[in-house]
Design a protein around this nucleic acid. Structure first.
Lengths: 233, 233
DNA sequence: GAGTGGTCTAGACCACTTT
DNA sequence: AAGTGGTCTAGACCACTCA
């Protein structure tokens, strides 16, 4: 007669008991087997529900100790960072790209740190601007590690933006972002159609392939219309 | 004789084949049963490996169609937003808090939109500054929905910051962040020890309890030393 | 209608942690 | 040593989507 009990059902019920205050932060909740019995389902079903709640940071689990309601000191949100061209086209604007410069450089101390280089390496330095229609959307300054991606030397990046070429050419395994605000220098203001000193949202990103950094990039956006969005729940 | 095959083992092997280019972006990979056969494990084991890869955005799965290597157009990073006081204390600085104002207000159109209010509601408006030692770290302007948290009226927030009180008092289920850069107004510059026009990193956050917004807050940080970090992998 | 992923089961054993 | 979560199995049925 009764439908099978889904892990979502279990998850919702546990959530409800946490939100209603029936199970308070720090408190131990019943063990998997007990919950499975009370819901009339298999332990695996309860396990999956609790595992997802643990991944979301709502409960903390330990073998032998059991499962506790987490003390919500901080919680993680998911930040989506789309490809520039799609982001622009999603607004209905025409995507346009301009390469400013491309040259081989050595790694100065700043770059050696940013790219986690252990020795002197040759890098490809590319500067470009991404436009939404006629409006500058993002100024990009990028260094590509030629030890990891030597094929980049064969690319002029005049018509294919480096981000797209890299995405399609070199799969990555890990990424790190640093987000900050900065005032536009005279040079950047010129590229982004801003006044000197206008606020910009700056994203610095390092992309890894296994243990090596593929590329380090600094992307600057006009602060008055660009936003990042992150959510959780 | 052979050890059982773990889902992590399967996950690593699939990842390896993607990274090595053996399975290219957009390409269909073998179905779960075929992989299970080739690994000599149960289909559930393969399923879990592929599910996690799908959650990480590396593959895309559809019933009937099968599993494809994702075109990595965008990928999600996890943004950790800690509690201000802990964030400051983690740097070794002393955390200090000052309430600037607290008053009841009605919901103007801007607030009704931000707080997703369907009708006129009373809100508690609190302005405060968080310090790292003697240095202003964050200016906070917050509106609390008194329909959801009427008990907030009993709090003066003179010594207990509203974020901490809310965290401990009202569990939340969902959160949304908007991150942008802005130039400091004269008033904000004064509060944050900046010059007028200096870049600030601004985080706007809405926190939900079920279908209702608990609070809307705008947090402004000096741009020259505050950064957000996000990672994935 | 058929083929794929999505989920649930019932049982088993393993791994970690505390007693 | 014992108790809890973590995982794997083998099989089953369901749900979605495509032809």
């Amino acid at each position: 007669m009764s439908a099978r009990v889904s892990y979502k059902h279990v998850k919702d019920h546990v959530l409800e008991r946490i939100r209603s205050g029936q199970w308070r932060p720090g408190e131990l909740i019943p063990k998997e087997q007990a919950l499975a019995d009370s819901f009339g389902c298999a332990r695996m079903t309860v396990h999956r529900a609790l595992r997802e709640l643990a991944e979301a940071g709502l409960v903390e689990r330990r073998r032998r100790s059991g499962t506790r309601v987490a003390l919500q000191t901080s919680r993680n949100a998911t930040l989506e960072i789309p490809r520039v061209d799609r982001e622009i086209e999603a607004t209905g604007a025409h995507y346009c790209y301009q390469r400013l410069s491309r040259r081989q450089v050595g790694a100065d101390p700043m770059l050696r740190e940013r790219l986690a280089l252990t020795r002197r390496s040759r890098l490809l330095h590319v500067r470009c601007v991404h436009f939404a229609g006629a409006t500058p959307f993002q100024f990009e300054e990028r260094w590509i590690n030629l030890e990891v991606v030597p094929e980049a030397l064969e690319q002029s990046f005049k018509s294919v933006p480096p981000n797209i070429w890299l995405l399609e050419h070199k799969p990555w395994s890990r990424v790190e972002h640093v987000i900050r605000a900065a005032n536009a220098s005279a040079a950047l203001a010129g590229h982004l159609d801003l006044a000197e000193g206008d606020a910009m949202l700056v994203i610095e990103r390092r992309t890894w392939s296994e243990a090596q950094v593929i590329t380090f990039v600094r992307q600057s956006h006009p602060g008055h219309f660009y936003t990042l969005r992150a959510g959780s729940g």
